[in-house]
Amino acid sequence: MFKGSWVALITPMDQQGNIDYVSIERLVDFHLENGTDGLVIMGTTGEAATISFADQVKVIEHVCQQVKGRIPIIAGNGANATSEAIERTKALDKLKIDGFLSVTPFYNKPMQHGMILHFNAIAAVTDKPILLYNVPGRTGTDLQAKTVAALSETKNIVGIKEATGSISRLTELKSLCPNDFALLSGDDETSAEFMLQGGHGVISVTANIVPKQMAQLCKLATANEAEAAYTLDKTLQGLHRQLFIEANPIPTKWALHKMGLIKFDTMRLPLTPLEPIHGAVIEQALNLAGIQL
């Protein structure tokens, strides 16, 4: 199940910062129509850090009702306190999701052994599959390959979103983890190479904007059609980079608003709308990817 192009879905909001469910439905239809393999709800790109857990549950439940099993859905369940992550997992486990994306504990910088205990405690309260999520640039904690290998022995810890952007890390993970352990890139800029070197897919920010192209890139790269994959990826590299010119998901929301897919590019503080000076470079990246505003 955990392969191909998964979108790290944004959470649309109105001008007051309330969840915009009409735009969510439009975005989900956009992905259903354009070949996205799976939806990741309430991860980093979904602004889970500033959305109450009660609202997170409502959004996830709403998307599940809309999708009706047509593509898999995984939900963010991470927290920096193990006890909170467990409670979130228990609550979300009641929804019709297909698994969890569980980020490394942030801010408190646990030791590797602490993270083994953390993730195993979460896995013990659900039968659903869990993807680990390693994003040291956000959390201040790096889940080492040997730690991932130890966690891969837990029955329902089935893969990882590896967002270091390091191909050497992929090589290490491949050598230590079982062959059926899902290895997904969490870094769009290096995702084509990640898949060509044996990764199984990507959880993508860029897929918010160009789902069809990202789905095709994954098909080409995982089939080891290197020349075609590199050619397509070249048209997307501008987006891979410029969607991070400001903190994610600021540029992505700006682009989706300009494309008419969401009503507003609103975010909750402390995130703020895109600085006008950056609009031109994002528009240039959109043009390179075949999108005319």
Rank of each mutant, 00 (worst) to 15 (best):
A229M: 03
F100N: 14
L151F: 06
A285K: 09
L95W: 03
H31A: 02
E283D: 12
T45Q: 07
V281Y: 01
V22D: 15
K263A: 14
L220R: 03
N156G: 01
R88Y: 04
L27W: 00
P12S: 04
A121D: 15
F2L: 13
A145N: 09
P249C: 00
T252E: 05
R88P: 06
E225W: 02
F119I: 07
S23E: 04
R70H: 10
D98L: 08
D265S: 06
L131A: 05
I245H: 12
V210E: 00
G17E: 01
N80Y: 13
L131S: 08
D233A: 09
L170C: 07
G159S: 02
Q56T: 06
G137R: 00
R88K: 15
A215S: 11
A81I: 06
E33T: 03
P276S: 07
T272F: 11
L32A: 01
F264N: 15
R138G: 03
A145D: 09
T104F: 00
P211V: 00
N134E: 01
T126V: 09
N34G: 07
D180K: 10
S83K: 14
F53M: 09
I130H: 12
L286T: 03
R169V: 12
V103S: 03
A145I: 13
L217M: 15
P178Q: 07
V40S: 06
A223P: 05
L131K: 04
D233T: 04
R241W: 11
K174V: 11
N208Q: 00
V205H: 11
H113C: 09
A121I: 03
K109D: 03
V28Y: 01
K128P: 06
V135H: 08
T44V: 14
K90T: 08
T11R: 12
E87Q: 15
K219C: 05
E193C: 04
S204R: 04
A49K: 13
M267E: 09
Y107W: 08
T82R: 14
F119Q: 05
F181E: 10
N248F: 06
L173Q: 01
I73C: 13
A85K: 13
D180S: 04
V135M: 09
T141K: 12
L232K: 06
R88N: 11
K3P: 02
K3A: 07
Y107K: 03
H278Y: 12
T141A: 15
G199Q: 10
L196A: 10
I24W: 10
A192Y: 01
N18Y: 06
N179A: 15
T36G: 11
K109S: 03
I51F: 10
I160M: 02
S168E: 12
I245R: 11
E87S: 13
E47N: 13
Y133S: 02
